[in-house]
Design a protein around this nucleic acid. Structure first.
Lengths: 135, 135
DNA sequence: CTCCTAGTTTATAATAATTCTAAAGTAAAA
DNA sequence: TTTTACTTTAGAATTATTATAAACTAGGAG
């Protein structure tokens, strides 16, 4: 994804393309594979990769802005830290407890044959399959 | 579950049946239906139900001891608080975002037809299905 | 191009959930 | 009954996250 596209992506979602947002967006979205991270890991990786310095609050702000705009999704993982995912399509996850690592599973890789009805007055928003791994 | 059984349950899992543990265990396990809670909600409910007072640290200690002994399970829910479940059998959950409420789904209610292989060198520990609800 | 304004970044403080600590208390073995 | 190891407790410490308020900046108005 080129810089011009990053600009478009930000603009179209009502986000001013500031220096910080562009740098973080480039880091997150200029990838072939999907990327999973926590704020902490992102902070460390950005510190290594770029010469700029980002306040932690900026990383929180930016990641949440991207999430709100639909450019990032949040993953349900047990634990204190919040995990984010650059893959925003409907999909599932492996979770490796040993390494605290998430791996995407394409929606087509999982077929559910039977599922219960939603309780009275409620509807099913989405179904997440979470496969815990061991060695 | 009678008091004597609570004693046995604690003893058999290497936990001294102290006053606090017995009271908390009675509150958690003397139920027909499974019970979902966070430390905060348990603390409030205990404060209402019993005359005794428990230090918050004791509730944390006790709940973790029960979990370690296999009497409670922990549920993956996105958010800051940790959810626990008195249902320790393999099962799934509905999650109502509006009310932050969990509802158990019996393992037999969900049939998965197709699932990907675990990555190289890893095995599947368990599969959790999490159904998000909306109104 | 320059000024203005609303949106942004930043360092730091505040909050929330949880864990740690060390002293006082208690269960159960000796 | 005494001893010892395990528990409880209040409060401090830690960790992740959010709020605050002052300094900064992008982009439009003139």
């Amino acid at each position: 994804m080129k810089k011009i596209d990053i600009f478009k992506k930000l603009r179209s979602s009502g986000l001013r393309p500031t220096k910080q947002r562009v740098e973080i967006a480039k880091f997150l979205f200029e990838r072939d594979k999907t990327f999973h991270f926590t704020i902490e890991s992102l902070d460390k990786l950005l510190a290594k990769k770029t010469t700029s310095r980002f306040a932690l609050a900026t990383i929180y702000n930016t990641v949440h802005a991207f999430k709100k705009a639909g450019h990032l999704s949040e993953v349900d993982v047990r634990g204190k830290k919040t995990y984010f995912d650059t893959n925003i399509s409907n999909h599932h996850h492996f979770y490796d407890n040993e390494t605290s690592e998430l791996i995407d599973i394409d929606a087509s890789e999982v077929v559910i044959q039977k599922i219960p009805k939603a309780p009275n007055g409620k509807k099913i928003k989405n179904v997440e399959v979470f496969i815990n791994l061991k060695n």
